[in-house]
Design a protein around this nucleic acid. Structure first.
Lengths: 215, 215
DNA sequence: CGGGCTCTTGAGAGCTCTCAAAATCGGTGG
DNA sequence: CCACCGATTTTGAGAGCTCTCAAGAGCCCG
């Protein structure tokens, strides 16, 4: 496993209302926050760092469904158990809230589901649909370009991305192997769309080109 | 385009409460119910037939995000416009309800979102996540087996599936080409997991084998 | 300086796609 | 009822993209 990353400076706080009832927990790189099949107990908010949502196949294949960063709410599974594991990608701080009444039980009336959680739910839905579209119909180089744009929503020439995840993580998110991820990044660099000062630091040079490539 | 399929016998009715405020609409095969980018106006329930949710790429590639069948609620986009098109796969009847207050506007308080719609939202989320996992990490033959199982949740030896969709639809849903879909079905048949009386009629012979193949 | 990861790069294999053509099916019109 | 027509499905052959396997380079840390 990868060595521990350096702790990061504090990120924006969650709104006071939630903050007062939650407890902050810290996780080391690769540490499991909750595991697939575990009973749902908490809803969580990322303070800083990064969390990956993943599933493991019996034969070792891994699928990463999403990366959650600062201010993302996650763990809102409306089932009795989590359907995916959540793991810290790097040094990560998370606020845990007890799961609200009726939030995880589909059989109860749910008129009281907090607005913020409903927003998280719909955001997750949009993301999952977009992810499926990417996985189903883009080729490797297009997936890679789309991933970079997803990492930096306000993409503009000169924008710099600090990747917290490994090539393996990226591959398991994009449905590719480590080698293909590496080759695609090399190609984007060769074509002048990005630059890489180090393997974890991506400079966006040509946003229009990225969008063109990402289909 | 494919010629019109025969109308099907009636399906189970939606619960009375919803039925009284909706209006029933009929759609011919391939007919568009709503298009990507159109303002959201209705939430819909399938009475009978089948609806596909899809996105078209500029270069002609198509992605199908889901198939909705009898008693499925759809069109609940929490945006001002639909993000995918909905099209009838075969002769289809749908009940249209006016979109409830606050249902499509993320900026309003949403404590009143009807329970049934919240259930549809979480069902869609689970489905989209599962779909992404399938698209990202399964090979063609595994996707095909998983699709067949998905078509027939109560799969058991002897179960018969009537496919309303074409090979092209299946391919665009599984991230495969028509030819690969056809070849995979042929292989499942050759291996004794399914039988096919006609191209649209699949008999499940070996459920355990299917599950094994679908990973 | 050495050990263990991660990342990159190369070569070849394999799976899926592309292109093409034949077979099948369903509907239409004679 | 049969022939025809278009669409769908199947099947084959070859190309191409991504994966697998392997080795080397880079980096961090002890």
């Amino acid at each position: 496993m990868r060595a521990a990353a350096r702790p990061r400076p504090d990120s924006p706080r969650p709104e006071p209302a939630l903050r007062t009832i939650g407890t902050v927990h810290y996780f080391a790189p690769q540490q499991t926050i909750f595991a697939e099949g575990e009973p749902t107990a908490h809803v969580m908010l990322v303070l800083h760092g990064m969390v990956r949502s993943c599933n493991l196949f019996p034969d070792g294949r891994r699928h990463i469904g999403a990366f959650w960063g600062a201010s993302d709410l996650f763990g809102l599974e409306r089932h009795a158990v989590y359907l995916s594991s959540a793991e810290a990608v790097c040094e990560t701080a998370v606020v845990l809230y007890p799961a609200p009444e009726g939030c995880c039980d589909m059989t109860l009336p749910n008129d009281g589901l907090p607005c913020q959680m409903l927003a998280a739910l719909t955001r997750d839905l949009d993301h999952a649909r977009g992810h499926a579209r990417l996985l189903g119909r883009l080729r490797a180089i297009e997936k890679m370009a789309a991933f970079i744009l997803e990492c930096q929503p306000r993409a503009e020439p000169g924008a710099v991305i600090d990747l917290a995840m490994t090539r393996q993580d990226i591959g398991d998110y994009l449905g590719l192997t480590v080698e293909t991820v590496s080759r695609c990044l090399a190609r984007l660099k060769r074509d002048g769309l990005i630059d890489m000062r180090s393997s974890r630091r991506v400079d966006i040079l040509d946003v229009a080109g990225q969008r063109r490539v990402s289909a």
